[in-house]
Computed example of a mutant assay.
Amino acid sequence: MKSMLKKILLLVAVGAVAFACKDVKPDPKPKPKPEPEPSVFKIAINVADGEQYTSQIDSVEAYYSTKEFNTVVLRRVPYNNGKFELELLDTIQNKDFQTIVEYYALKSVIKDVSVSDATTLIAPIEIRCLKDGKITGYYITPRFTVEGADHSSGKYYYCDKNCELSMDKKIDAIHYIMNLKLAKGYNFIQSINYYENNEMKIVFSTEQQGDFVWKIWKEEHDDDEF
């Protein structure tokens, strides 16, 4: 009798263990951590009298040109009556733009510019307007009001490393002054035109002067912009 009771208790114990084992669920696999969102550089723009262009513009895009002068679009956003924000990746992966020496060689002044690192890559960032996906010929740039200056404007540039440029020389009746301290990433370069004592002076600087507004212009480039 005792032997039979032991067998029954043993079977009950084994069954309980088997049931408990069936009820145990394996630990769920840990969820992979989400990749961090890429860091971006933001440019907030509010175009002066921007609502006047809504029939001609429905979107804008930021882009740069490669050393072969091909266009690479970085970002396109709705025009939104001239109030929009461009979010550009902090790092441009494509490195198919010009060296800083090649870029300023096109301006015919590189031999007179002191450059801290001639291997620095640089790309001017343009902002153009579109309608139904087609280029309109309108571009957006900031225009500054600087005391004593005839004209002042500027644009953003992307650099792949830190670099400094300096210059103070008269070339073909124009006195050029350049004081640029460029950091890796996006930089804003302002050009300021002065006319003093029958002489034209153009200053290029990464230190902004005066107040500015964003304006729409039909031309892509100004002759004095670097």
Rank of each mutant, 00 (worst) to 15 (best):
M1H: 15
M1V: 13
M4F: 12
L5C: 01
L10T: 10
L11Q: 05
L11I: 04
V14P: 04
A16M: 08
V17S: 02
A20H: 11
K22H: 13
D23S: 15
D23E: 14
V24D: 02
K25S: 08
P28V: 03
P34K: 03
P36F: 04
P38R: 03
P38M: 02
F41I: 01
I45K: 03
I45T: 00
V47N: 01
D49Y: 06
G50V: 00
Q56G: 08
V60H: 02
Y63C: 01
Y63P: 00
S65Q: 15
N70Q: 10
N70F: 11
V72K: 08
L74N: 08
L74A: 02
L74Y: 04
R76Y: 13
V77A: 06
V77Q: 05
P78F: 05
P78W: 01
N80S: 04
K83V: 12
K83P: 09
K83W: 11
L89G: 13
L89N: 15
T91D: 10
T91C: 07
T91N: 11
I92G: 02
I92F: 02
I92S: 01
K95A: 07
F97E: 09
F97S: 07
F97P: 05
Y103V: 06
Y103F: 09
K107T: 10
S108N: 15
V109G: 00
K111V: 13
V113A: 08
S114W: 12
S116W: 10
T119W: 01
T119K: 11
A123N: 04
A123V: 04
C129F: 04
K131V: 03
D132N: 06
G133T: 00
I135D: 10
Y139K: 04
I140D: 03
P142M: 04
T145M: 12
T145V: 12
E147M: 11
D150W: 11
H151G: 09
H151I: 12
S153F: 08
G154Q: 02
Y156I: 06
Y157W: 03
Y158I: 09
Y158D: 07
K161L: 02
N162W: 06
N162Q: 09
C163S: 05
C163K: 06
E164F: 09
D172M: 12
A173G: 13
A173Q: 15
I174M: 07
H175R: 09
Y176I: 06
I177N: 11
M178P: 05
M178I: 00
L180E: 03
K181S: 12
K184M: 08
K184T: 11
K184Q: 13
N187G: 07
N187D: 00
N187A: 07
F188G: 08
I189H: 01
I192N: 07
E196L: 10
N197C: 06
K201D: 11
S205M: 02
T206Y: 00
E207R: 08
E207H: 08
G210S: 00
F212R: 10
F212Q: 05
W214E: 03
K215A: 10
K215Y: 08
W217I: 13
E220I: 01
H221W: 14
H221N: 14
D222T: 11
D224K: 15
E225R: 05
E225L: 07
